[in-house]
């Protein structure tokens, strides 16, 4: 690719954007974002209050938040929250450890890579929920059921990214290391690991989201203790505001997970020329 001639232009290529008089452009997106959230919240409140949407199905937002604050004072809620987050974290950690180890081993040997690729391509798209009946038989509503689903779903994300990462190692760098008589462990640490790190961080981000989905699914569908199960109970007992309140909590956990993953990515890759954009 040809390097772009350094221009004087600040990166605002859109003609429309430069045409408008802009005074306080910096704070604008944040303000608009807050406005967007306000529109959704007020809109939902109005839809419910005016009865356009049956309040039995969509209670007023204020009521949802009132329920949410009540929940925050209850020990059971916190217990469920801890169980969910713990299940997610343990499953994710296991999937990361397994995926990285398997990825490095398979990726380092061309033969292993070629030999396993058809199997990986076959096993990867198998939906982890297919295992639900099996784990129910084996462990019922115990946390192991959720653990297996989480690990199965997240493992493939990690493995595939790590394989990409190991494959991305610059052959020249690898040859240089070999020509200096680096041992395999040193090559792994000083050449392969730094190249694969951005991919590992991408894997972490993708796997963290998938792991949360499967943890909640296991709780909701199988009845493994946690917020997912509480949502199911609230809904089947007709407690609509609590159902919504718990869904909001789960959504916020999801936001936190995403923000954490992105933060970790930035922290770990401050030295990297570009934060990779993944096409997984």
């Amino acid at each position: 690719m040809s390097p772009t001639q350094a221009t004087l232009a600040p990166p605002t290529p859109s003609g429309a954007a430069t045409r408008k008089p802009r005074r306080s452009r910096k704070g604008r997106p944040a303000l608009l974002g807050i406005a967007g959230v306000a529109i959704v919240l007020v809109g939902a409140e109005l839809l419910s209050r005016t009865g356009i949407v049956n309040p039995d199905f969509l209670p007023p937002v204020t009521e949802m938040y009132a329920t949410l604050f009540r929940l925050l004072g209850e020990g059971e809620f916190w217990h469920s929250l801890v169980l969910t987050v713990r299940g997610w974290a343990i499953g994710l950690a296991a999937a990361m450890a397994l995926g990285i180890a398997a990825g490095f081993v398979i990726g380092s040997f061309p033969f292993l890579r070629a030999f396993t690729s058809s199997t990986i391509e076959f096993l990867r798209p198998i939906p982890s929920v297919a295992l639900i009946p099996l784990v129910v038989l084996l462990w019922g509503t115990q946390p192991q059921s959720a653990f297996v689903l989480v690990v199965y779903a997240a493992f493939w994300q990690v493995l595939v990214q790590v394989l990409y990462g190991v494959a991305d190692v610059d052959p020249v760098a690898r040859d240089t290391a070999r020509s200096y008589q680096f041992g395999p462990l040193r090559i792994a640490r000083s050449v392969i690991y730094p190249t694969a790190l951005p991919y590992i961080m991408t894997a972490f981000r993708l796997a963290a989201a998938v792991a949360l989905i499967l943890e909640i699914t296991a709780e909701l569908v199988i009845g493994v203790p946690g917020l997912g199960r509480d949502i199911g109970i609230a809904q089947s007992s007709g407690n609509v505001p609590e159902t919504y309140a718990l869904v909001i909590v789960v959504g916020l956990i999801g936001v936190a997970v995403n923000l954490f993953a992105r933060f970790a990515e930035k922290k770990m890759l401050w030295w990297h020329p570009s934060i990779r954009s993944e096409h997984s």
Partner: peptide, 18 residues
């Protein structure tokens, strides 16, 4: 010289920049 605003000039003539 580099940084003389050649590209800015060209984009202005092309109507891509006001």
């Amino acid at each position: 010289p580099s940084g003389a605003g050649k590209t800015t000039l060209l984009r202005s003539i092309a109507g891509l920049l006001d």
